[in-house]
Design a protein around this nucleic acid. Structure first.
Lengths: 222, 222
DNA sequence: TTTCAAATTATGATGCATCATATTTGCTGT
DNA sequence: ACAGCAAATATGATGCATCATAATTTGAAA
């Protein structure tokens, strides 16, 4: 689950706390609007404030957290504009990943994607939305991994970090026809058709993410 | 020059030091391979180690610096593979920026681009490669700014941060026909032709950056 | 009872002491 | 003179004390 941003994630406490918080964000355990207190976290984790401060500063930098005021650190709300911008970026970048993956995928890579998709289908029938959410994410990151683009992986990880609380919230509401659009991606990769794979992942982001956009627009009107 | 990653760059010392180091990286004052020592920097800047440590951790996170070993923080060398990956990403992302800018550009935006280009031409005739380097960068970031995509700006800023030491080194060697490819971009934007603008900026990245690739390949053979 | 201000508390920022370890230096024995 | 080991030094990691300020509470006066 940790896509190790830094190839050498040196095991200092700050990085450990950082990864903990990342996981919490992606799994939706930190709701948008939630406030984080350094001392409180430090006590919970049994460390001093320094590593927690390091981790939070890192997350603030990459805008996975916001510092509304110097003493007020929160999980940010996603806006419609921001989501649309991120969506456009994702289509370009994940398109690049899918295209490259289609060119490089061997049998084991395809098997890996098939496995993720089938487990995702299972999770859907079992109504396990948390697992479905995680497997959806695994699919997208498997593409970048297969493509062999570590730098791109880092960028996409940061993007997903910001969408984490939102996506988890939407998934918990149940709406998740997201898996349907993964099959065309897999087909294109099987045929080593890069442009088709890019186009298919673009469809996934556009259509699969439609319920996310509806969710945002509904909240914006409140 | 500071494209303010965080909309509210809260003026704590750590952020100040961070921006100082960013500027040093982009201007090429920190050569690839140079080692950074926290205490040394703290003394130079007249602060304690804490803000410097904050800043360096941030830069390590976004891979603008590397921690080879836990005590060895250096400006990383660019590899050919990494450069090619970054180039592919830039073509996608700056293409998006140019396309959007073409749709949104008004008269003042076009004037702004014209100004940058003409000053860049001046700098080239005056053989002022440092200024040319900075104006080249300003042109690329003006596109994202005109496009009104703040999130994309953050991503691109981080990418440029990593290329900073390399680009500055190449510019100092004199090779900079980079400006020629800016004119077609401007023309496409004048005509509000998004796809043409995207294509033109792609040409700029590919051809204008050719000397960078040569520089890297030459060094790789040493 | 309400309002405003002073005091208290909470919280992040910063500086710094200390620790562990890697590197360098120097001493000793062959 | 050189190899090897030990001491000294350098350096980042971590914990924590203190500071400034924002938020909250309390108390007194109207």
């Amino acid at each position: 689950m940790d896509y190790q941003l830094d190839t050498l994630e040196h095991d200092n406490l700050g990085s450990t706390v950082y990864q903990l918080l990342c996981k919490a964000l992606i799994q939706g355990r930190l709701q948008p609007g939630a406030r984080l207190k350094i001392r409180e976290l430090a006590e919970q984790l049994g460390t001093s404030v320094t590593p927690v401060r390091d981790a939070i500063l890192r997350l603030v930098q990459e805008q996975a957290l916001t510092m509304q005021s110097p003493r007020d650190i929160r999980v940010p709300f996603m806006t419609v504009e921001r989501y649309l911008e991120i969506r456009a970026i994702r289509i370009r970048l994940e398109g690049l990943a899918a295209e490259t993956a289609a060119q490089k995928a061997d049998a084991s890579a395809i098997a890996r994607l098939e496995d993720i998709i089938s487990r995702n289908a299972q999770a859907m029938t079992a109504m396990d939305s948390a697992l479905g959410c995680e497997l959806n994410q695994q699919f997208h990151f498997a593409l970048v991994d297969i493509a062999g683009l570590p730098f791109l992986q880092g960028i996409l990880y940061r993007i997903w970090l910001q969408m984490g609380p939102l996506i988890a919230a939407v998934y918990q509401q149940g709406g998740s026809d997201m898996i349907d659009y993964h099959y065309p991606v897999l087909d294109a990769i099987r045929q080593q058709d890069g442009p088709a794979a890019a186009s298919a992942i673009g469809d996934d982001i556009l259509h699969g993410g439609h319920s996310i956009l509806l969710h945002l627009q509904a909240r914006a009107q409140q």
